[in-house]
Amino acid sequence: MKETGDRRQGTVLCLLFVYHKKYSFKETENRPLSPHLILKSMSLIKTDKVSYEYIRRDKDGAVEGINKAVDEIDLSVEKGDFIAILGANGSGKSTLAKHFNALLYPVGGTVFVGGMDTRDEEHLWDIRQTTGMVFQNPDNQIIGTVVEEDVAFGPENMGVKSRDIWERVIRSLKSVDMFEYRKHSPSRLSGGQKQRVAIAGVLAMQPECIVLDEPTAMLDPMGRKEVIASIRELNKTFGITIILITHYMEEAVHADKVYIMDKGRIVMQGTPKQIFTNVEELRGVGLSVPKVTELAFELRRRGVDLPEGILTETELANELCRTLSEAKHRKF
């Protein structure tokens, strides 16, 4: 039992963090706010030359250097979109993601969420409610000791009435297919299940958009599949806008639009088909294309007659069958 003290310590610190953050974000921003763009932008999320930098300090606190994590990024996300943002480690994709629900404020440029400037403190909670966020580590974002209580955490903070919270909890858990686990302790669930609970927790806040910051990075292949299936389901059936941050190409295949980030900048953008055609270029920024696409690419290079931008196994199989039968015809 000697360890219990240390465990408590961690939580105490966590709460200290909350306190610290709660009272310190006011000082960080002194640039004037931009006028609302409600009419100008119909986009759900719009960034305008957004930059963010981390200041490196030596041990005396003197500035050693500045890391530009995000460098003048312009992008816009429309309602109902499924966007994937890809990039190697350290490309700034997670930093960018944290701007979408005002966890970070841009050093330069502006982020608009539903027409609200994220630096506008008045709308802080509206913004966080509009874009929910799911993080990488499933253990570090579950607050409740029972699944249903965890899902209720968001609505509780928003001051939703108890009866309505129940309704939201039940609906959210059902839409990620975790309803039967509502009485379980999260610590007994698998990684994929925990992550789906986390998604349900965001859903219960009834957001228009969910930002998922590498939600599958710590999961096994099974869990990864579950989570991606849930995300696609939410986008298709409920029309919830999805921004998926990942470095797994396979997960971006179903997106409407893919952005590739490198060194804080967007280096490529387009549909998955357009993006994955440029196998060499992707390799240049430290990314590899999906295995199927790579196979097709190598086959093409060796003279097999295949179209560009093959993304799924079925597609490749169909194309191969076609080429083979054509080759047969030519022989006769």
Partner: peptide
């Protein structure tokens, strides 16, 4: 690791509108 978890959890709580 407890410190790191504490930081992560605080961010996650804030992202879900926790404000005391």
């Amino acid at each position: 690791s407890a410190f790191r978890r504490a930081g992560d959890l605080a961010t996650a709580m804030e992202a879900r509108c926790y404000h005391g």
